Measured scan of single mutants.
Amino acid sequence: MDPFVVLVLCLSCLLLLSIWRQSSGRGKLPPGPTPLPVIGNILQIDIKDVSKSLTNLSKIYGPVFTLYFGLERMVVLHGYEVVKEALIDLGEEFSGRGHFPLAERANRGFGIVFSNGKRWKEIRRFSLMTLRNFGMGKRSIEDRVQEEARCLVEELRKTKASPCDPTFILGCAPCNVICSIIFQKRFDYKDQQFLNLMEKLNENIRIVSTPWIQICNNFPTIIDYFPGTHNKLLKNLAFMESDILEKVKEHQESMDINNPRDFIDCFLIKMEKEKQNQQSEFTIENLVITAADLLGAGTETTSTTLRYALLLLLKHPEVTAKVQEEIERVIGRNRSPCMQDRGHMPYTDAVVHEVQRYIDLIPTSLPHAVTCDVKFRNYLIPKGTTILTSLTSVLHDNKEFPNPEMFDPRHFLDEGGNFKKSNYFMPFSAGKRICVGEGLARMELFLFLTFILQNFNLKSLIDPKDLDTTPVVNGFASVPPFYQLCFIPV
């Protein structure tokens, strides 16, 4: 058959498939802009700032609406009420993970971030239990974070109060905490193996944040037939998995079943207990991918939040002064901060919360999916439909947070200066898919920041009023603009 005829037939089939998918069930789905064949609503979305586009569309179609990214149908949730109703009140029905062709290629359905069903539930339950087990290797997770915080302070001392970009050092600290939990080992910041790991993690975040990856996920045929950065992403992930597998083999040879040292040991012990169960989800494949998931999810998000926190503290020296006064009063100079201190430091706690609220790190979270046909607000959402959640619409709700575009710790303080919780605080998402490392991340943010401010004054290279804190939105995360500062020993 003539190649031209084959091409026309293929394009015609794709067009018909697109029209059929977009028209099927439209009477039951939430409203939304009319999609174009094949490309859907992509032309109506700013790929570099999806969150802003969703906010604009919500003003037209309401808090629940339908979009098509290519052939992929998505239902968008915008605003606290619908997000709570879906992710919390109907948590089980909305607990699936959205379709990610690239991740599915890399992870093969294993791990904790992109798995679904029984596998996801069992691996998540085990990971939560293990991360909360403060007795691994007779050292609590808090001990590990405190140790890394001391190392971080010593690295900052080496800058000798000269101007520096904190990106690298602030990236090393949370990565080392995860390494300590998974591998029972922290690395020197100049260790070549550690630097290679950091390089792969950072490069992957840069790649994932590009519009090209959005295109690959919406048109998965590209993955096999086109060159691009997605190939580098898959190569980096394969490198990390190979490295983790080597460490798993080392653990198998040296493990003491009665004295687990780290996450890998705990997983291997669980595998041993379930070795007679042919349906067990505790396999080497799941261990390797879960460890890679924890490394990827637990490094860049925390380091970016820390980097943004220091920029905001530079911009608002009056806030920094209040935090340091609270540190001096509650902790002093002669001991290290600990998590028990947080309950006695409402202002510092409010500042950490406000940093996370203000920066809105992951504006749309990772997409969910419905696990069955769901009736939601008089609409029928078919099983498997991807759910896109606007966390921006919750964290920047102007009824809950007056002047949401302003950095103001009073958003989390009552009139008496006591810490005030808010149900709208969802930087880790909400419901059954809430970030498994939430507790660890909150511990790291509090301890790293208090250790830094206990030991250093922060000095800006320019007038604080002239510092730009506008986030650089890159399609996946909101990151701070480049800046330098000086760490002046107190």
Rank of each mutant, 00 (worst) to 15 (best):
S422K: 03
V323A: 08
C13H: 00
Y358A: 06
E155M: 09
F487I: 04
T290H: 01
I207R: 05
G117I: 02
E154M: 10
S24R: 12
T301N: 06
L380W: 14
L77Q: 00
K459E: 15
V83F: 05
D191Y: 03
R433C: 04
E281M: 12
S280L: 05
L9H: 01
A430Y: 04
Q484R: 15
V8S: 11
E444C: 00
F267K: 01
E300V: 13
N259I: 06
S303D: 04
K270H: 11
H411P: 00
A321Q: 14
S460T: 14
K121A: 13
S209H: 14
N41T: 07
F65T: 04
K28P: 09
R125L: 09
K200N: 04
L237H: 15
P3E: 12
L77S: 00
A297T: 06
V288G: 07
E122Y: 06
Q22I: 12
V436F: 09
S303H: 07
I42R: 07
E92A: 08
P382N: 03
L7I: 08
L314T: 11
I284R: 09
G117R: 05
M240P: 01
Y424D: 02
R433P: 02
R97K: 03
I178Q: 07
T392F: 04
P480T: 09
T364S: 10
D360G: 05
F94D: 02
P174A: 15
S51M: 04
E92Q: 07
F376P: 00
P31H: 07
L313I: 05
G98F: 08
K84H: 12
A292F: 08
F412M: 03
V82R: 03
R329M: 13
I257R: 11
E438H: 08
K249R: 10
V76M: 02
S365P: 08
R21I: 11
E253T: 14
D188C: 13
A441I: 01
N378T: 10
I213L: 13
M136Y: 07
I39D: 02
K247D: 07
E85Y: 06
P211E: 06
F401G: 01
N231C: 12
L237Q: 10
C172E: 08
I362R: 15
T34L: 10
W120E: 01
